[in-house]
């Protein structure tokens, strides 16, 4: 990692912030998670400058923190936030739908599956990339995503949403 915190901030924070906004919307919560991810990266004494390792670490940690936040939420996402997202990126309708759905059901879904879903559906990672970030096999990622789809479908029916 860059030897001084300010250089590290300029190098890593913009992409951490973007990642957190994709998961949590443009909110104070996204800013908090971004800040915490960056400070954890700094304090971990992360020495590598290899973009592959650095980004995998950042994606893993920020996704983990975001999932904690999503599972603590007691309210459904605001329509305004969702509408803003939709305007921001014309190709993001499905992304917004995925995020909204994940937020709605987050408390009822296993954290590991949520992490895989955030990476695959919101960040557009291939299943192979998800496996690399989460340090699991491709097969496990596939199984998690399939299981999550089934659980969401079940929740849709039982919660009537």
């Amino acid at each position: 990692m860059d030897t001084d915190i300010q250089s590290a901030y300029l190098r890593y924070f913009p992409l951490i912030r973007e990642k957190c906004r994709r998961m949590l919307g443009d909110s104070d919560e996204a800013q908090d998670v971004a800040q915490e991810t960056f400070l954890r990266l700094w304090k971990s004494g992360f020495q590598t400058k290899d973009p592959r390792h650095a980004t995998a670490w950042i994606y893993r940690t920020s996704t983990n923190l975001a999932v904690d936040r999503l599972r603590q939420r007691r309210t459904v996402p605001s329509e305004v936030a969702v509408a803003q997202m939709a305007v921001e990126r014309s190709t993001a309708e499905t992304e917004v739908q995925h995020r909204q759905e994940l937020e709605l059901y987050a408390r009822h879904l296993p954290p590991e599956a949520l992490e895989a879903a955030l990476l695959h559906r919101l960040d557009g990672l291939t299943q192979q990339e998800v496996a690399e970030v989460l340090q699991m096999s491709d097969r496990t990622v596939r199984r998690l995503l399939l299981k999550l789809d089934a659980q969401v479908e079940h929740l849709r029916r039982t919660l009537g949403t």
């Binding site: 913009p14 919560e29 800040q35 700094w42």
Partner: peptide, 25 residues
């Protein structure tokens, strides 16, 4: 974009024995 202003919290490295929590959380 490497030209954005650096906020106060990122100007001073946190001490090694401190851990920052999600305070606003």
């Amino acid at each position: 974009n490497r030209s954005e202003p650096i906020p106060a919290w990122a100007r001073t490295p946190p001490a090694p024995d401190t851990r920052v929590g999600g305070w606003r959380g």
